[in-house]
Design a protein around this nucleic acid. Structure first.
Lengths: 237, 237
DNA sequence: ACCTGAACACCGTTCAAGT
DNA sequence: ACCTGAACACCGTTCAAGT
């Protein structure tokens, strides 16, 4: 749905495809290929050369579509937000603001889960693009509907989105380590913490099993609910 | 204080410096130089070659101190935790658990602020090393003291630490972008969002000033307090 | 005006050849 | 046994030379 926007625009405009529209189409194709490449080969596997090869282009053509690799990354960031917005779909107008925020949290997690490498590469960026703008408007409308004064609404909006993205990036950057490093990291709780010597770290030792059992999604949900509750209390209190 | 641990151990053991101790000393020197290099030249500037050069070593010697670059990064991660522990200092035994958690949050932010590049490079890793183990024990002792059952104590501990690290990494990865990209990102709120056309995004438009005014530290504090409150309520409720 | 290949200055990592 | 330089297979990015 988010895909082929430029194509649709081109067709709607009545036949003649301008240079600008062809450029947009090629950029979108490049973004699609970049996501595929990143998820298949990992963060280190997404190189300008390999992407060009995948698209049957010379690298320098890619450099005319995107000024540099950073601009490609910003386009990837926009794409992840587009996917989240697609995932969210239409929001019932009468829905309580908290539930809309929860929808956004779910959709963002879903995208992180599906595209961990892309998420890890882009989580901390601000694009200023159309998808990001729609997302900002959607979330700000929730936090203002809650009854918070502008200053507080903005503070809680940013706390929510940065926390959600930070935790998604945390989860994503684990899933996007090389297999061996991933395994090294993943099993640390049981490998190291369950086998601590008797005397040291008594509390950690008795909690090692629980530590290995907690899922990243449970952590994410706990953080999201904590921030929602804090916003509610700030609004009504 | 965290530095020269190996040196102290070597001297205490009575004169003869073993191969193992010399190795530890060289690893520590490498970590120190790596932090300096990363903060001076950015994440892309921390390469095995440049680090070896900085230490007047052949690259391959570096590869005998650390199996690969990832092992160096884990050592950097340990170092950031050591610095946070130094920052925390002695914790008064009778201190309310919430205040101890706040100390940890402050110290972690402080380190992020001082070493953004190193923080951004390492935030999502689990090292299983001694500094990390001390930090886990300290924080778990807080969340169990709060009266939470083991399962919940662990859930809130992980929610706290992952949220704190995620937000620190968010802030850090902004401070560690190349100057131009950083500027591009930083001013987006005023550059793009304050100039939105009248019709679209009305809520964002009216909040653009506030959005540009919120500091990353305020966001961090809001998230930390929200999680502390949620933990308190789960413990007493 | 557009495309192209070669080049520049780097990477992480390995290994045969030296002392 | 330890150290070393050169090499391999890559990077992002640029630019002169072609059509």
């Amino acid at each position: 749905m988010a895909k082929n926007t430029a194509a649709a625009a081109a067709r709607a405009s009545g036949g003649g495809v301008t240079r600008q529209e062809r450029r947009s189409l090629r950029q979108e194709a490049a973004v699609n290929a970049a996501v595929r490449l990143a998820e298949r080969d990992g963060a280190a596997g997404l190189s300008m050369r390999k992407l060009a090869q995948e698209l049957d282009l010379d690298v320098t053509v890619l450099y005319r579509l995107f000024r540099d690799k950073d601009e490609l990354l910003l386009a990837l960031c926009e794409r992840t937000i587009e996917l989240a917005l697609d995932e969210i779909g239409e929001v019932p107008g009468a829905e309580p603001w908290q539930d809309t925020v929860r929808r956004v949290a779910e959709a963002t997690w879903e995208v992180q889960n599906r595209l961990p490498v892309t998420t890890a590469l882009t989580f901390a960026r601000t694009t200023g693009g159309p998808a990001e703008r729609r997302m900002v408007e959607l979330l700000l409308s929730c936090f203002t509907r809650s009854g918070l004064a502008p200053e507080r609404a903005v503070l809680f909006y940013l706390t929510f989105i940065d926390t959600a993205l930070g935790l998604c990036a945390h989860a994503a950057s684990l899933s996007s380590l090389n297999p061996e490093n991933r395994a090294k990291d993943d099993t640390t709780w049981t490998r190291v913490y369950a086998r601590l010597p008797e005397g040291d770290h008594p509390i950690t030792r008795t909690h090692a099993d629980e530590l290995a059992r907690v899922s990243r999604k449970a952590i994410y949900d706990t953080a999201v609910e904590a921030i929602l509750t804090a916003a509610e209390r700030a609004a009504t209190g």
